[in-house]
Structure formats: structure tokens, C-alpha cells
Amino acid sequence: MEKFEINILGCGSALPTTRHFPSSQVINFRDKLFMIDCGEGSQLQFRKSKIKFSRLNHIFISHLHGDHCFGLIGLISTFSLLGRTATLHIYAHKDLKMILQPQLDYFCKGMTYEVEFHDINTNSSDVIYEDRSLSVSTIPLKHRIPTCGFLFQEKPALRHIKREMIDRYSIPIAYINCIKNGYDFITEDGETIPNDALTSDPEPTRKYAYCSDTKYNPSIIDQIRGCNLLFHEATFAESDKKRAEETFHTTTKQAASIANDANVKRLIIGHFSARYEQEELLLDEAKTIFEETILAKENLKINL
């Protein structure tokens, strides 16, 4: 099965602590790297996770709060110092270019590569990136400013050829791609050989959903249903539910309820408030509703 890894670079919330870095993740899909959010210190965590800078070409920013984007200018500058030549694509709310361009003009004169900004609509679910094997869509969230999550969805692979059946019917090589795409084969005698006799099913496709920051928002359930892994913020314990509502964040049990109702396979919670010294409390609360829950932590790698 092809590589589909989630690397946690930071999982803390706005206030820096000695336990956590601000929000950032890197998705390794078939050795192509995609960054989600870029909080302060992300490039340091990039190195600690032993991920190659050169394979990162796309960065997705969920919203323009500092703990999700203050690391961008440093990362962009480092890429230039390393002699990067490939274009870096950044997907974010339209205001990011207005904010970041003066910094690029001042601190990054003579850059060795281009930065291309792609405006995203945080109010709708749109495909914002697509290649032959992967699509990335926005997930509208509810926070104090325009915010969205991201759904990484693997595209269906071609069907697997049964070599013995190809040999049995002496099927020419020119027909193989059609058969992989689901077509039947008709012999010279006019006999139709059904595709399911010639092929087997490909591996199931995989999906990863990233949802941070947001208040409790059941409207996302249909879009993330059946995901192999859901990252959902759980900034507060249930005892601080009122504070969560005031700041447009989610509690542990609310995040677990989203995972349970969406029938995802696993939940990882993060974006922890600095007020909690023992995060096992947050995990225990979430597990009362959704057992397959784990805590995010720096340099954690999860394979789908």
C-alpha cells in the first residue's frame, strides 16, 4: 500500500508552553509533502521529524490566527537560503497575501523561487488541490474569524489484474489498461469475459480530515464520514465548556461525539489549552464517548 502518513509538528494552542509547539502538521502522501498550518517553530520541528524540506510544495493554512501561521515567513526564508527553485503554493484566506507580501518584499529580496498564493473560500466545501491520486477539499468550520479544515482523500486505484486469467484468454497487452479501468473483454469468438473474472478489487481508498479551530459543529459530519483518521481540536475539558463556547472552540466530549457520529476509524485530539498540565484527563474524557482516541504529540507519525 502506498505511503499516507500524518506527522504532527505542533499541537498546542495560542499560548506557547514548554510542552507543545503551535499547530502544524505534514502529510506525506506517496513521498509528496503537504503542510497544514505553520505555527511558530514549525521548521525546527520539520527537522526534528527528519522530513525532507525539498519535497514540500503545498501549504494549507486553516485561518489567520498567529499560532497557525507565524512560522511561514521563517520557513519561506529558509527555503531561499537552501537554494530552492520550485514554486511554493500557499492556500489560505485572501488576506494572507496582503499580510505576508510586505514581509517577503522586505526580508526575502532576491528569493530563489516563487511563492504563489491561492485564495480559498472558508464558507464552502471546494476541491482546492488535485492530482492523479489525491484531492484536498476545504471543510467549513465555525471560529471567530474565517476558518476551514481540510479533507485529504485518496483517489480510487485501478483494479488489479489477475495474471493467470490474462494468460488463459491470451489478452493482448494493448487491452490491459482498459481492463484495469473496469472494461470487460470480448474474445475473437465473441465471448464476453466479465471484468470481475479478470481483475480483483484495489485497496480501499483512505481519507484524513483536519479540523482546527472550531466550535462544536455537527454540520461537518457528512463530509468527514468514514475517515480513516480525524484530527479534531479539543482545546478544553468538558468542565470548561462555557469557555469553549465563548472562544469558539471544542471540548473533548464534543470532539469525540463528532468522531462517533461520523463513524471515523480513529480520532486524534489536539490544540490543547496551556491550562492543562495533565492531558490524560482530556484523553479519558474523549474515550468515554469514542474509544479509538489518541492524544496528539510533537513528532508523532501515524500511518494510514
Results as ranks from 00 to 15, higher is better:
residue 3 K to A: 02
residue 5 E to N: 12
residue 13 S to A: 04
residue 14 A to W: 12
residue 15 L to E: 11
residue 17 T to L: 07
residue 22 P to T: 05
residue 28 N to E: 08
residue 29 F to G: 09
residue 33 L to E: 05
residue 39 G to T: 04
residue 41 G to T: 01
residue 42 S to L: 03
residue 43 Q to V: 00
residue 45 Q to H: 08
residue 45 Q to R: 14
residue 51 I to F: 03
residue 53 F to D: 15
residue 60 F to A: 03
residue 62 S to D: 09
residue 63 H to K: 14
residue 63 H to L: 02
residue 64 L to T: 09
residue 67 D to E: 15
residue 68 H to S: 11
residue 72 L to A: 06
residue 76 I to W: 15
residue 82 L to G: 06
residue 90 I to K: 12
residue 92 A to Y: 14
residue 93 H to G: 06
residue 94 K to C: 02
residue 95 D to F: 04
residue 102 P to R: 07
residue 103 Q to A: 10
residue 103 Q to F: 08
residue 106 Y to C: 12
residue 114 E to D: 12
residue 114 E to Y: 06
residue 116 E to C: 04
residue 124 S to Q: 05
residue 127 V to I: 15
residue 140 P to K: 13
residue 140 P to V: 07
residue 143 H to K: 13
residue 146 P to G: 02
residue 146 P to I: 00
residue 147 T to V: 01
residue 148 C to W: 05
residue 152 F to T: 02
residue 157 A to T: 03
residue 161 I to C: 08
residue 173 I to F: 15
residue 174 A to K: 15
residue 181 N to K: 15
residue 181 N to C: 13
residue 183 Y to W: 11
residue 184 D to V: 08
residue 184 D to G: 10
residue 192 T to V: 12
residue 195 N to P: 08
residue 203 E to P: 12
residue 204 P to S: 08
residue 207 K to N: 07
residue 209 A to F: 00
residue 210 Y to N: 13
residue 214 T to A: 01
residue 216 Y to N: 04
residue 217 N to G: 05
residue 217 N to H: 15
residue 218 P to G: 00
residue 221 I to A: 06
residue 231 F to E: 09
residue 237 A to I: 03
residue 251 T to V: 02
residue 251 T to E: 10
residue 260 N to R: 15
residue 260 N to Y: 14
residue 268 I to D: 12
residue 272 F to R: 11
residue 285 E to K: 02
residue 291 E to P: 03
residue 293 T to P: 14
residue 294 I to S: 15
residue 297 K to F: 11
residue 300 L to C: 04
residue 300 L to Y: 06
residue 302 I to V: 11
residue 303 N to D: 10
